[in-house]
Every structure is written in structure tokens, then in C-alpha cells.
Computed example of a mutant assay.
Amino acid sequence: MTVTVDTSRGFVVCGRGCRHWGPHGAAGLLLVHGSRILLQERTPWVHHGGTWSLPGGALHAGETARRGAHREAGEELGGLPRIRHHAIHTSDHGGWAYHTVIADTLEPFTPGRGDGEGTRADWFTPGQVGRLPLHPDFADTWPAVRALLGGRP
């Protein structure tokens, strides 16, 4: 019998002194369909619950940002549509990083019932995002991520 230890769990403190989930960093998937982006409201029991952010989470040891973002988003959204990658934005916190993987959907997508880490997911225009209660780290990176969207409304 082989026992696998999940090394992606646990909080760490980065070089800036902030507390983050995932000792190997974390990644989220920003899905874009036309002029809208998909965000997820975090359940009350997760870190920064009640805020809006990307479906995503802690990376496993040795896992790429792209693979981790796909795995986590698929779990939280109940699957993923066909996508085409656009860009990756990395926010380095000194010994810990969050990777925003940006991808265009190639078909309409309605999120399904995921693993319960989000209470709901919805599509927003980039202009609507600033009016939402955002996860603090997502709020900090949103201007740079938005710039990578290439002038969408």
C-alpha cells in the first residue's frame, strides 16, 4: 500500500510577513469569455471567506502554476470548458507566489457544483470587479491582471 502525503496544505508566512495558504505557492484560473470574466465568491469557512476571487488554491510540490490552476478550478467549478491560454501573472511575495493563469473559454460555460470552497461563481465585466468585496491579494493584483486582458471593457 502506498501512502501519499499532501504537501500542499498549511499556512506559511511570506517574506512580506503575510499569511498564505499553501507552502508551495498558489494559483488561480481567470476564465474570460467575450467581455466577461468568471469570479468565485469564497465560502465563509475558507481564508478570506465572503470575498470574491479566482477559483484556485495551493500548488502541490513540483506542480506548475498552469496545472495547479486547472486542477483547483476544475475542483471548485465542477469541471472546466475548453480553453486557450492567454497569459500568466505572478505576484511574488518573497518566498511565496500567487500565479493568475488567464485563459479564454472556447465555448460558453456555466459553472457546476464544485467542492464547496465557493458559494457561487458568476461572470462580470472588468469594470464591475472593483465594486465587489475582493480577496485582499486579488484586489492588489487586479490592476496588473486587468492590463493583461488587452483592453477589454
Rank of each mutant, 00 (worst) to 15 (best):
G22N: 02
H47M: 14
T125Y: 01
F109Y: 04
I83E: 12
A61T: 14
V13A: 13
W142H: 01
D6M: 04
V101G: 03
E63F: 01
L132G: 07
A97V: 10
A65H: 07
G127H: 14
P133K: 00
P133I: 00
T125N: 00
G62K: 04
T105E: 07
M1N: 13
T51V: 01
P136I: 09
H89K: 07
F124K: 05
H85S: 13
Q128P: 08
L77D: 00
E76V: 10
W21P: 11
A139Q: 13
A65E: 07
T90C: 13
H70T: 14
G94I: 09
G127I: 10
P153E: 00
H99D: 01
T119P: 08
Q40N: 13
A61I: 10
G50Y: 00
E75C: 13
L30K: 01
G74N: 03
G112Q: 06
R120D: 06
D122W: 06
I88M: 13
P23K: 04
P108C: 06
R36T: 06
L149F: 01
H47S: 14
A97T: 10
G34H: 03
H20S: 07
L132N: 08
H24C: 10
V145D: 09
W52Q: 01
T141D: 14
E117A: 15
D137Y: 12
E63T: 05
R113E: 12
V3P: 05
L29Y: 00
P126Q: 07
R67F: 15
P23N: 09
D140N: 10
R82L: 11
H89Q: 08
A27R: 00
E76N: 06
L31E: 07
R36Q: 12
F138R: 02
S91H: 13
W21H: 15
T141N: 04
V101N: 06
G94C: 11
R113G: 12
T119K: 10
G28W: 02
V145A: 07
L132S: 04
H24R: 02
A144F: 12
G79R: 01
A147F: 04
H47C: 13
L134D: 04
R120H: 07
T105H: 08
G150P: 03
A97C: 14
P126V: 00
F138N: 06
H70D: 15
T110N: 00
P81G: 02
A121T: 03
A65F: 07
A103L: 11
D104A: 02
R146F: 05
E63I: 08
A65Q: 07
G25I: 05
T2A: 15
Q128V: 05
H99I: 05
A121Y: 03
V32R: 10
T7H: 12
G50R: 03
L80I: 03
F138G: 05
H86I: 11
T119R: 12
L106Q: 12
G95Q: 11
D137I: 11
T141W: 04
G79T: 02
A121Q: 11
D115R: 09
I37T: 00
P136R: 05
